[in-house]
Computed example of a mutant assay.
Amino acid sequence: MRRFAVLLLAGIAVAHAGTPQRIVSLSPHATELLFSVGAGDRVVAVSESCDFPEAARRLPKVSGYRGTNIEAVIALKPDLVVAWPGGNRAADLDALRRLGVRVYESELNTLGSILAEARHFSEWAGDDDSRRTAMRLAGEATAQIIALQRRYGDSKRVKVFYQLGAGRLFTLSDRHVVGEALSVCGAENVFGRLPLPAPEVSSEAVLAAKPDAVLVADPGSLAAVREQWKSARLFDARVADARVLGVDGARLHRPTLRTFAAVQTLCESIDRVRQTLR
């Protein structure tokens, strides 16, 4: 089992000269982290998918699924653009760099990297209080994950299929932060070793994997997914509903400080399944 304390040491923070005064954030997770550590007042624009906190919703939107509006970004005269390589077009980021805009790429795929990024972003807030707040929040999250790991990490392993929603069967592998969260909770991701972060699998593959539980990342799809696996007879009819559970995918998938509370709830859900396997 991977140990969180080790991962925490592998933070991805990269130092930049100078404290940015005008930040454009093109990533929902970066926007949320910036506000969490006191640098939100320096954010002058965001992407369309930046919906938390409420203050971020009121900022100009300069990016969306069609790409980034380069002219709109330049007009805001940012001294830093925070981008997400997995969600922003490389061509757009290259264009910004060619125009002299400093671009910082934030790609977080471990719990430790979330905390390292929070600490790094707090340096951009430009005051000691923000840095101390970030350190406190990071310390609390670290203690929380270590406690969960001690409580559940060496328990009976629960084999889980992590399903993103109803319909086509998309899941998350261990290349995504959810894979680490499942490990902390003492669960085995049955498709964790697949090479893509969000692969599509077949119902036959799920049946062959024989998971102990299905975790549904979209609670609104829970009823449909339960019917889906009842029809496929994945579980005995007497326990089928108890083995298909809804989890907080919105917080688990977006790597921010809110992710850690979602991991605790995830562990509790998995442990309820564990109790039925004894």
Results as ranks from 00 to 15, higher is better:
Met1Gln: 11
Met1Thr: 13
Arg2Ile: 05
Phe4Cys: 03
Phe4Glu: 07
Ala5Pro: 00
Leu7Gly: 13
Ala10Ile: 04
Ile12Cys: 00
Ala15Lys: 14
His16Asn: 10
Arg22Lys: 14
Ile23Glu: 15
Val24Asp: 06
Val24Gln: 05
Ser27Asn: 10
Pro28Trp: 13
His29Met: 02
Glu32Arg: 10
Ala39Thr: 04
Gly40Leu: 02
Gly40Gln: 05
Asp41Met: 04
Val44Trp: 15
Val44Tyr: 13
Ala45Asn: 14
Val46Glu: 03
Glu48Asp: 10
Ser49Tyr: 14
Ser49Asn: 10
Asp51Pro: 08
Glu54Thr: 14
Ala55Tyr: 08
Ser63Tyr: 09
Thr68Lys: 02
Ala72His: 04
Val73Leu: 09
Ile74Gly: 01
Ile74Pro: 00
Val81Trp: 13
Arg89Phe: 13
Leu93Gln: 10
Leu93Arg: 12
Asp94Asn: 13
Ala95Leu: 14
Leu96Lys: 02
Arg102Glu: 15
Val103Gly: 06
Glu107Val: 09
Asn109Gly: 02
Ser113Cys: 04
Ser113Trp: 04
Ala118Arg: 14
Phe121Thr: 06
Ala125Thr: 01
Ala125Val: 07
Gly126Pro: 06
Ser130Cys: 00
Ser130Gln: 02
Gly139Arg: 09
Glu140Trp: 03
Glu140Ile: 03
Ala141Glu: 09
Ala141Gly: 12
Ala141Met: 03
Thr142Gln: 15
Ala143Leu: 04
Ile146Asp: 12
Arg151Met: 05
Lys159Arg: 15
Val160Gly: 02
Gln163Tyr: 07
Arg168Pro: 06
Asp174Ser: 05
Val177Arg: 01
Ala187Val: 08
Asn189Glu: 00
Pro195Cys: 01
Pro199Asn: 12
Ser202Pro: 11
Leu207Gln: 12
Ala209Cys: 05
Ala209Trp: 05
Pro219Met: 01
Ala223Cys: 03
Ala223Met: 06
Arg226Gly: 03
Arg226Ile: 01
Lys230Ala: 11
Lys230Met: 11
Leu234Asn: 13
Arg243Glu: 10
Arg243Lys: 09
Val244Cys: 06
Gly246Glu: 04
Ala250Leu: 11
His253Gln: 11
Pro255Thr: 07
Phe260Tyr: 02
Phe260Lys: 03
Ala261Arg: 03
Ala261Glu: 12
Ala262Arg: 01
Thr265Ala: 10
Glu268Trp: 10
Arg274Tyr: 12
Gln275Ala: 12
Thr276Ala: 14
